[in-house]
């Protein structure tokens, strides 16, 4: 049900030429994805998806729209190449899911490796009831440090490219 909503939203995003509506649809798309994560019991991910996807990225895309045009340009000519590439990629991805274990299968490889140790030992070793937090922050601390470094780099990149809003204030000062 949710997936069919997702597919409908995605098709509408492709078809529509009014970018304002497309941004709104992206927000709905993120909210639907968050609902799917919630149904799959991944509350932490749903949280992030709702706040980033439906909240902040919508605002950023609206800010970008305010700087650029509101309607999409008509494509110059229809070419079959993108469609073929998408079809091949999609077929490969579906082929890749064929030998994946069934959803929730306890004998799947991912439930046999380190997961039992985390589930059994985390309460004694870290004393933290939320295993997601203990894995994220303690057992996988290096990964999280890397993720924070990625976010830091993204922030620095935007500052370098756009000037962190300081340039425009100088411009305003010159005008007045």
């Amino acid at each position: 049900m949710l997936l069919s909503f997702l597919a409908t939203t995605a098709i509408a995003v492709v078809v529509l030429r009014d970018l304002f509506a497309v941004v709104m649809l992206f927000g709905i798309y993120s909210l639907l994805t968050a609902s799917i994560f919630l149904v799959l019991d991944a509350v932490d991910v749903a949280f992030t998806e709702a706040a980033v996807g439906a909240g902040i990225s919508t605002v950023l895309m609206l800010a970008t729209l305010a700087l650029t045009a509101r309607t999409e340009k008509k494509p110059r000519q229809w070419s079959p190449l993108p469609l073929v590439v998408v079809m091949i990629t999609g077929a490969t991805l579906i082929y890749g899911t064929l030998d994946m274990p069934r959803y929730g299968d306890p004998s799947a490889a991912i439930h046999q490796h380190v997961a039992p140790r985390y589930i059994n030992e985390s309460p004694h070793e870290t004393g933290i009831p939320n295993i997601v937090t203990s894995v994220l922050a303690s057992y996988r601390g290096y990964d999280t440090l890397g993720e924070v470094a990625v976010i830091f780099t993204a922030g620095v990149g935007v500052m370098v490219l756009l000037g962190a809003g300081t340039r425009s204030r100088k411009k305003k000062g010159e005008k007045s």
Partner: peptide
């Protein structure tokens, strides 16, 4: 970072 990125976008003129 979120606030910085927003300021960077919002601070730009058309």
């Amino acid at each position: 970072v979120m606030v910085t990125i927003f300021f960077a976008f919002a601070g730009r003129e058309r």
